[in-house]
Design a binder for these strands. Structure first.
Lengths: 351, 351
DNA sequence: CCAATTTTGAGGTACGTGCCTCATGACCTA
DNA sequence: TAGGTCATGAGGCACGTACCTCAAAATTGG
């Protein structure tokens, strides 16, 4: 049984009384308005700390009679994962509106870093409080993020990080751990030993590289009876991946396992089915989608590692609220958002 | 790019205008106060539907100047999972307070259905809006839940459901799917065939039974080369489970896999280590905890299926907000909370 | 049709915060 | 010391909803 000691949370009035100043001054400090001597501001800060005052976000947004404006910027195109991500965002628009958050989405041509940077630069603080971007590793993007931060827009990265920039949070999975998990599973699936092939989209992509490294490292450490073939790059293209996998299967007739760290799963599935090896080779791939779901159902794919777009979007929205609360305040009382878990799906626990 | 068509959400004022009644009448309808003719109420309901009016929960709680009161009732005792569940609740108390929700927890003696029922009966609608219980299958509990619902307290079940009662939602995993998933993994781990043992706490427990059935069914359907030994009941006791597992390992020297659907993992691990078979038998168990975490790290356990207490608590809180919004309204506009995913953990993706 | 009762309207105050104006006080500089 | 700038206080209105009172209107029963 928990009894709450302070039944009522502290309000700005309490802070004013505790600090021995007027409400107006507290307001000026809280909202970063000018005209407060450092000494006075310090008194207010102390009172805030003493009373553990936390601004009531709902009342705050109510008073401003404006919503917290959140914008997602994601790559467009046919990448099934990004489409799912967009759908996950759309799914959250209504519920978020109920909590006074308006969500907008814009897209940029996939891999077009300049376009992404331009999109970020176009944001004005008066119409956007927080932006969440699926970043590509690029200097222009890096600069755009820093500039947006300076303009007072909170920036977060999603799925793929841009460490070193002024982004407040990264929302996404640990791709090295994902690679190791795939290795751990495949190692147990193929206990008898043999060859395992690794397919990637491009090793220039940070997430693909990290998955590969985690996977290869784990096999080396724990399953010396398994030998790694590849990595091969299929550039996340259906046709190219299909041909690539067909060739690999052909050249390595005793292949026992296959790990695709990238996209292009439709091609992978087609090649496996065509070769007649479906079900005989253990297969792990990434991201739940219509395609991979079917792959699981038909027994072509054994395991899917998934980023859980819904969870990521939820975490992003929650983190945005957190940032909105602690903004402008001297102390950054932002807690890190919960880490995104790697979803592991077999045919039997498909959601 | 999404442009919001109706920039402003509808307010009670809009509803009053649309319905051609006064604000007071709208208020009476919205909050179920008496003194409104059915005809008039109908007009208001129509206006609400037309404008897609949704009460602003934050403003509502602000106006009432009281928080949404949520109570969790969970079993006490040494069950590590329940302790974790309690910790997950505690972790959410502060963040929830920031959204005007006060959370309290009470416990009852594990498996003591009468005590649970009494706890539920003791709740008054004026000090509790919503209660979340880890239910045991019992008629008295069933009745207590129905009575609470009649008193105007929303009830939800957590972890273990009580279907047929008036509980609004069940928050928990699909235990049949969990059992099937375990079977699917163990089947692939032990592709060469052999004997697999199943340990349960008690088959009288709904979740244990369901996991067992899912597991056994899947092995039968997909892995005929594997034969199931058991189920054996260890009553979720450390010592009893340890002795049980030791006996099973002794009597079945060629055992290739082991699935524990219940608790008592400390005993399981001890028995495996003592027998010298740790690492030679593939092991799947349930619930991340200090114990099972160590089991994973040391290679005694291969996979842990987890309920994700944090996710469950979060879902429960979100669902409670949803119920608070739609209460008293004629239409039940409650959407079902997201299903809880079965977490799958190996040594390599421990969170 | 009158009286009793029920239904409805009008308007106020409150919640915690944001934002505005205006007045007053303190401080500095010439 | 006068004139100016800057810091601070006092207070009000707004946001959307809850809840209250009081009066006016509509409906009902006899």
């Amino acid at each position: 049984m928990n009894e709450n000691p302070d039944l009522r949370r502290a309000t700005v009035h309490d802070v004013a009384r505790e600090a021995g100043v007027s409400l107006a001054t507290v307001d000026r400090v809280l909202n970063g308005r000018p005209g407060v001597r450092p000494v006075t501001a310090e008194k207010v800060e102390r009172a805030i700390a003493v009373l553990d005052f936390r601004r009531d976000l709902s009342a705050s947004l109510l008073a401003r009679s404006r919503d917290l404006r959140l914008r997602f910027i994601i790559p467009d195109g046919s990448n099934e994962f990004m489409v799912n991500l967009g759908a996950a965002i759309a799914r959250r628009v209504r519920p978020a509106a109920g909590e006074r958050m308006s969500i907008e989405t814009s897209t940029y041509r996939a891999l077009d870093a300049a376009a992404l940077a331009a999109s970020i630069d176009a944001l004005e603080p008066k119409s956007c409080d927080c932006v969440v971007v699926v970043a590509t590793e690029d200097d222009a993007v890096h600069r755009a993020i820093d500039a947006a931060t300076r303009r007072g827009i909170a920036v977060m990265t999603l799925v793929s990080d841009l460490p070193g920039s002024s982004r407040k949070h990264f929302i996404g999975i640990d791709n090295i751990a994902a690679g190791r998990t795939a290795g751990s599973l495949l190692g147990r699936f193929c206990a008898a030993g043999g060859e395992i092939a690794l397919i990637a989209g491009s090793l220039a992509l940070r997430d693909h590289r990290e998955r590969y490294e985690g996977f290869a490292g784990l096999l080396r450490e724990e399953f010396p009876r398994l030998s790694l073939v590849g990595p091969f790059e299929g550039h996340d293209e259906r046709a190219e991946t299909e041909q690539l996998v067909a060739e690999v299967l052909d050249r390595h007739p005793n292949l026992v396992g296959l790990y695709n760290v990238g996209a292009g799963n439709a091609g992978l599935i087609a090649a496996l089915q065509r070769s007649g090896k479906s079900g005989k080779v253990r297969v792990i791939a990434h991201e739940l989608s219509e395609t991979t779901r079917l792959g699981l159902m038909h027994g072509v794919i054994d395991v899917i590692l998934d980023q859980n777009p819904d969870g990521e979007i939820r975490a992003a929205i929650e983190a945005a609220r957190g940032l909105a609360l602690g903004r402008e305040n001297g102390e950054s009382r932002d807690q890190h958002p919960e880490a995104i878990e790697i979803g592991i799906f077999l045919r039997d626990n498909l959601r």
